[in-house]
Design a protein around this nucleic acid. Structure first.
Lengths: 177, 177
DNA sequence: GAAGATTGAGTGTTCAATCTTT
DNA sequence: AAAGATTGAACACTCAATCTTC
């Protein structure tokens, strides 16, 4: 029961093999992981986006809405959304404007610090977010269905290790149960 | 030697925990993997892009150049580049135009099938590609340095399993050694 | 002076429609 | 009729500069 599934090769194996041919001493593993990471992430995004298109919603809209949906009092600072979104501040401003147009969020100046903007989910936004949450979760489940629980758990743990190395540990365990 | 490193949490653990709070029976693992996958891929891209900026090269330029660099006779069909790039055909056309402007590739009509376009790397393009290959490989190595060899290998294998499920096995094992 | 959000310029992408070749 | 590449419109992002508030 040793090497159980090394026979099946993917497109990346082929690509990496060509690299080795030119630079035999190369660290092909990190290269393979780089390529696969990118490809998988891309496929996942496409999948979710496809489902969302049926509901006339963009992927980034779902991200913003869901972040607010999970927040305390359905409200978050613009800066929080910035850090959660992995995009630049200019993009956040544009997104919020669009979300506001659609009537899903409201922007208010933070009374205690007038530099900051507080973003609040409207009732319509709340309902939409709940609907989208189901759709997204369903898409994700389907996407990872080909992996068994053990592999998926392992993948989750390994990616966490990497993420902690990059971003550092969880920002604030305050209020942990 | 059971649970060796579950203590360190990442930002995604916090996000996922909020999901559980609302839907306890949720499949949080696939959700966690989804988020981490996206985040890690994003960080990696940023990292490589940052290095490339110093050489006045865009990430997509590197991708195209390297694909050609690894190809037989430094030449590939536009369709091959399309399938390798995970972007739409319109994007490929634009990219090729820019690459041609920079003097790194040449576009010729395929004599045997005049619908297709053959893309060939120029001498200047070849040299640039070689330079970029080193830079990118270096970035990737640094990025995954925090993971030990065992974990990295495991990650590579798990992602391959997923990729095979999505894209299918390697397109063409022809000429396998 | 630093932090936070906004603006505008420049760039690249997707999508649908079109054109050519088979 | 189908396959492949190109075009143009619409859209969202990044980056740098600006404005406000602390």
């Amino acid at each position: 029961m040793a090497h159980s599934t090394p026979p099946v090769r993917d497109a990346v194996d082929v690509m990496v093999e060509q690299w080795r041919r030119q630079q035999p001493e190369l660290d092909v593993v990190s290269k393979a992981v780089s390529i696969r990471l990118r490809r998988v992430a891309h496929h996942l995004e496409r999948e979710v986006r496809r489902e969302l298109a049926r509901l006339d919603v963009e992927l980034w809209e779902l991200d913003m809405l869901l972040a607010l949906h999970n927040a305390e009092g359905r409200r978050l600072g613009a800066g929080d959304l910035l850090r959660a979104s992995q995009v630049t501040s200019g993009a956040i401003t544009n997104r919020l404007a669009r979300l506001e147009q659609r009537g899903w969020v409201r922007r208010d100046v933070d009374p205690s610090d007038r530099r900051q903007v507080l973003v609040t989910l409207t009732d319509a936004g709340w309902d939409k977010a709940a609907e989208l949450a189901v759709t997204k979760t369903e898409s994700e489940r389907r996407f990872f269905a080909p992996m068994d629980a053990e592999m998926l758990g392992r993948l989750a743990a390994d990616l966490r290790t990497l993420l902690v190395a990059i971003e550092g540990p969880a920002p604030d365990p305050a209020g942990a149960d």
